[in-house]
């Protein structure tokens, strides 16, 4: 079979990706457990903790609630991408969704692109909700310059890409779908605690900051602070600046690294099918 014939016979990537994204989206919105777990939970936390923190001042003329909203947007992004994908894929492998797809001529990238699009969709909806609540009740200032909106967009895009890839890579290490939530949820929660979501990052012990700096969530939260907090606050960051070049670099590096790991570890069939 020559390359030209293969091209003719493989279904168009765009059409399959659209079909996969539709399936992913339908499954997500119709499966209430996942909606509550990764979508609504950050919104609830925002309301509860935002109310608790509201009024506590940080140096640099920042309300702790403002700081927390920026972090929660990052944490929400991490949840709908990493947590969501790393839990869903082992289950889909167990019940044979992946095996069914692997038996078709579908370009395999369509499955992953479909997941990314679903994550982007959900993240967008969640961001609208978090920004709305944050600005209405917790003193969050929406960005007032084009530059900040652009930063907001690229942090979201790089954040979704890196954390979704990371979730896909992590799914290769999970033996079965039943244990996936028990493994992935604690990882997400620990990262939230050490990455400056619930606590001000600069106040964390140095070793904790160092560990957190390995993972994407710390950089997403920092990028979000650069978007939503006044510029005067960046003197309070451990590095004395928003380090946006580093944010971009680390997130891009995670995209590449997670992709390389996923290519080696991703399995379309359960272990019993070897």
């Amino acid at each position: 079979m020559n390359a030209a014939a293969t091209l003719v016979r493989a279904p168009a990537l765009l059409a399959v990706t659209r079909a996969r994204a539709r399936v992913e989206f339908l499954v997500f919105i119709r499966e209430w457990i996942s909606v509550v777990f990764t979508f609504i939970f950050p919104v609830l936390l925002l309301i509860i903790l935002g109310s608790i923190f509201h009024g506590q001042r940080l140096p640099g003329d920042v309300d702790l609630a403002q700081y927390f909203v920026a972090g929660m947007i990052g944490a929400g992004l991490f949840g709908v991408s990493f947590q969501n994908v790393a839990i869903a894929i082992p289950i889909e492998r167990d019940i044979g969704t992946l095996k069914r797809l692997a038996g078709t001529p579908m370009p395999r990238s369509a499955y992953f692109l479909g997941k990314m699009l679903m994550v982007a969709f959900v993240a967008l909806a969640q961001n609208v909700l978090l920004l709305g609540i944050g600005s209405a009740f917790f003193g969050l200032d929406l960005p007032d310059t084009v530059g900040r909106w652009i930063t907001y967009l690229w942090v979201i895009v790089l954040g979704i890409a890196s954390c979704t890839m990371l979730g896909i890579a992590a799914s290769g290490f999970v033996r079965n779908g039943r244990t996936a939530p028990a493994i992935m949820s604690p990882i997400a929660i620990v990262l939230q605690f050490i990455s400056g979501v619930y606590f001000v990052f600069a106040t964390l012990p140095n070793w904790m900051q160092t560990v957190a700096a390995i993972f994407p969530l710390k950089w997403i939260a920092q990028g979000m602070r650069s978007v939503f907090l006044p510029d005067g606050y960046q003197a309070q960051e451990p590095a004395g600046s928003w380090e946006l070049d580093r944010v971009a670099l680390v997130l891009a590096a995670w995209c590449v690294l997670a992709f390389l790991v996923a290519v080696r570890t991703f399995r379309w069939r359960a272990r019993t099918d070897d």
Partner: peptide, 9 residues
């Protein structure tokens, strides 16, 4: 049916 149809040329 729609999702699987999209997988074939």
């Amino acid at each position: 049916a729609r999702a699987m149809a999209a997988c074939f040329p």
